[in-house]
Design a protein around this nucleic acid. Sequence first.
DNA 1: TTCGGCGTAA
DNA 2: TATAATTACGCCGAAG
Length: 885
Amino acid sequence: MPPKTARLLLVDGNSVIHRAFHALPPLQTREGIRTNAVYGFATMLQKARDMFKPDYIIVAFDHSKVTFRHDLYDEYKGTRPETDPELRPQFALVKRLLAAWNLASCEVEGYEADDLIGTLSRQGAAAGLEVLILTGDRDALQLVGDRVKVLLMRRGLSQVEVVDREAIKKSYGLEPEQLIDVKALMGDASDNIPGVPGVGEKTAVQLVRQYGDLEGVLAHSREIKGRRVAENLETCADQARLARRLATIDCQAPVTLDLAGCCNQPPDYEAVLALYKELEFHSLVKDVLRAMEQEGGKDPQETTAVRGLSLPDPLTLGSLEELAGLIAGLAGKTDVALELILNGPDYLEAGAVALGLAWEGGAAVLGTAGIQPAALAGTLEPLLQVNPIFHDAKRVLVWLSHAGARVADPGGDTMVAGYLLNPSASRHDLPELCLEHLSLALVEGDSPQLAAARRAGAARLLHRELAGKLQVAGMENLYRRVELPLTRVLGAMESYGVAVDMETLELMGTELEGGLAALTEAIYELAGEKFNLNSPKQLAVILFEKLGLPPVKRTKTGFSTDAAVLEELAFRHPIAAKLVEYRQLAKLKSTYVEGLKPLVNPRTGSLHTSFNQTVTATGRLSSSEPNLQNIPVRLELGRRLRKAFVPHGPGRLLLAADYSQIELRILAHISGDEAMIAAFRRGEDIHARTAAEVFGVPLAEVTPAMRRSAKAVNFGIVYGISDYGLSRDLGISRSEAHDYIERYFRRYRGVKAYLEEVVARARQEGYVTTLLGRRRYLPDLFSSNRNVRSFGERTAMNTPIQGTAADIIKLAMVKIFRLLEEQYPAARMILQVHDELIFDIPEDDLPDVAGLVKDTMEHTLELQVPLQVDLKAGPNWYDLEPYKE
DNA sequence: TTCGGCGTAA
DNA sequence: TATAATTACGCCGAAG
């Protein structure tokens, strides 16, 4: 095998940066620093390095605007617009990137990147190197030679075309050098170089092919057919000669190839990580960490080190006695992290396999597989009292509490802290947070013991970082007073669960089955054939092909068959109404009867939902397995399901407490709108009041229809209204809807001003906040896509309202939980449904607990308007009667 | 296994 | 110019 020829990669920095800038959407950091060109440059150059594995790399840049070409021709590049202000600062960032990458760059006063590359390519070729030129500029094709190829970027950044001498011959029938003559004839609008009028690329190529070069063409101008071209060639001869000089890349620029100084060498990893982190190039951070792993060559199994910082080697404990001794010794320490590795995701059922502890300067592990949970819990109890740090405290606390430990509030929870810092992120697991906030890879997949130690160590380090960031962001109180204590509240709610009356559930299932069978028959009859009723696709064929009904609207994949469509079709064919009914019953049967049954824990006879604290972008909780926040209530048939939700045993009942109009009250408060505040203070029906204002009638004359419209407008306001959405909702024309909204804003001027201001501020800051300082970043506001941008604006309007409601009910939950724990331990909070709390309590406690709950919910935070809580109580979730004290 | 359509809640 | 009013979770069929 012949010895490998060394390879030199020359990069036209300006060209690649411009390409990247225009090819990519306007990416930016949370602070609004534009990074798309830097990002594109980084990925493009990395791709070239991976694909071609050069031995040497030099990135060349234009230096100043004025070059020798301006001396030849004043108007050179005279039509170029100013560099886009979004792009200009990115050049400095690219240079920082190159420094971190340990790559050579090159610029020389009075020369363009082209000239430097031309010169270096000649020198490289002369030295026997294989030279590759990375650029988006076709002008560089003139540099192609036997040892010089151009990597031409096509279609943005996605494709690279390797152009060599053969390729040019094939597409133009010319040698690379002759491309200069072609350009001299046709000119270059982008550089403001005039060509010969009437000569475009086709003619120019053909002429040069025929006569060899510009001078050859000019010498034979008389022979050229086409009188106009011939004439122009004569009159413009000198201009073409000038153009040729301008188009020629200078291969004699004052620059010398120094191979020792431009090796393709490993980067300064720390610097690259720091810069990527600063620019929020998360995907690239991961690539770098992977590269570091390989570079380091260490087997991750052999070390407990988190890359970049080393964790102390963990002490391996052999028994609970040793653990107890260690915990006694940790008495004075703050900042202890505790991790418990379980053998399954269901922490109400799982067993513990390993325990990890980490503190300042030390760590310890204990394999717990053979240990009685109660013994482990008892040993850990003293440690829990000093409020250790967890990742997902609820999981560990529920397990320990189940095992019999008395648990206290956590001292920290990295999952919750990470969520608060960016609630929109899709993941808040420990490895992801380490990557995001520490730029460290947390390697998993070891033995449970090592994982426990490593995760505890990582959680401890991570928590310091997160706590600092929370303080800077002004979310310390929200974190410590609301979210951290809430972990324990939610854990207790999940553990206790909601008791289910299985007989009622089974009975409903049987009834639904009967109904579905009858409906299925009827629909097959009307359709004239059997088909899968649950398949929208098959249904569409029946409705729109077989029965010839008119399609109403489309989905991405075909004609829609949703409820709104079926409602319209109901006038044309009896099958539509049957289908609506079928869908309703099928939903209830599959999701709510069959879906719930297997989730009822046979030991407790209860449903133990998961209340997820780190899912929603607004600060709300979510509920899953099962979702108990969307149990039907609007339609009677579905509502009856609630009969199956019962208290834990005789002598107990359910108490429901819900906030009345909490979102509109919050809107009144944060907007400061006088009219709305006054209405709430007078205790008026806000929808009726809104109707009176919008329709210009006295309160007493508001009709039910007027109130219904006003209610829809109020909802719309909270969601970030559009006339289109409102018109659809109310079945009115868009202009009528527009009119309603205008009249609304005329009466509630404070609301209008607030909604405008909140969007403007979000644009300024990059995020919106709630009353307790919860944040949501809104990068969509800066999208170049109009729809995405509008979405961002509606989110900016809605999130402070929805999020503040979440703040308030969460704070109330924490307070109520403490009060009940102390005063009415048999009374339990069991569910939260966004603006509503459900309790399972002894009948005897009803008067006291009802008062305590209502009072706490209404006065947990004082707004400019009163908060109103309505109470209901009863033997199940369906049969609730208003409760008066 | 994943995605789209659909439907339930606040 | 044409336009999904916010936030979630779960079931099913169809496509992979």
